[in-house]
Design a protein around this nucleic acid. Structure first.
Lengths: 139, 139
DNA sequence: TGTTTTAGTCAGCCTCTCTGATTAAAGTAG
DNA sequence: CTACTTTAATCAGAGAGGCTGACTAAAACA
């Protein structure tokens, strides 16, 4: 079986479950919105940085931030260090989502470890981390 | 680091490279089209089956098959065993794409093995296959 | 025979993503 | 200090890919 599909199957499962947990907890965000939301730093992040981190164009990031803003999950404030820029900041409303996602990830990882064993889980992580060295374009 | 991202990074790298190889060889298909094309069996496959395998609705699969048909990569023929159904079949024109994709996969796997070592590569495969048992909705 | 299921299509809509052009502020070279 | 270039963000327009709902025709079943 193709290694690509082997990687994709658990990834999709994980992503679906995290999204289900987050939306189930009342945070009504889409996957694309969540990908942006996730990258906003504690003191706010510029749109351009978000776009780079999420690997989309500035226009796409702007579009998603517009939606998140309308939903009340983020706000845009002027960047005091640069008159052109604005900082996208997570609102209080959105801050509850992170622990929900993290709890679900922990739950899934525990299930996986339960099924494939502690040893194999550690090997999986190790192999993937090493693979990231040559496949991650952002390092 | 999040296990989801760890899975996703090499997956995306693989997918991007396969698509680059296939389109570079002159097969002008999009990712979504390729996902459908890939699932067509040697004797043709019904639209409904393709939709299930690719995890999209029948309408979406039909839309993609329409495009592939216009491009000359597939043809629709009546299913002799069911008057309602039609079989989607890969044309000669598209058959050259498979070896291109397979060669690229082989090349990538060799590179990965080179970097992380034969042992870790085998462990990775083993862990992923076992993980598929609980994360693959189609088994 | 009449009802229900199944294969596929038609119509319409939404989300996400892109390219290209524009505005305003910052940085830089003369 | 002024003119040019770069950078942050937005506006405008388009296209791909996905969905739901309604429908037709053939098959399966009671």
């Amino acid at each position: 079986m193709n290694i690509g599909l082997l990687l994709y199957i658990p990834y999709r499962d994980l992503e679906n479950r995290i999204m289900a947990a987050v939306t189930g907890a009342g945070f009504d965000v889409t996957l694309a919105q969540a990908r942006v939301l996730q990258r906003i730093g504690p003191d706010g992040t510029r749109l351009t940085e978000l776009a780079e981190a999420a690997q989309v164009t500035k226009q796409t990031a702007g579009f998603l931030v517009d939606q998140l803003e309308k939903l009340g999950y983020v706000e845009r404030v002027p960047d005091p260090t640069d008159g052109r820029a604005r900082l996208v900041r997570v609102t209080e409303k959105a801050k509850g989502a992170t622990p929900v996602a993290e709890a679900e990830i922990a739950r899934i990882e525990a299930e996986w470890e339960q099924h494939i064993g502690k040893r194999r889980m550690a090997q999986l992580r190790e192999a993937l981390e090493k693979l990231g060295e040559i496949t991650d374009p952002y390092r």
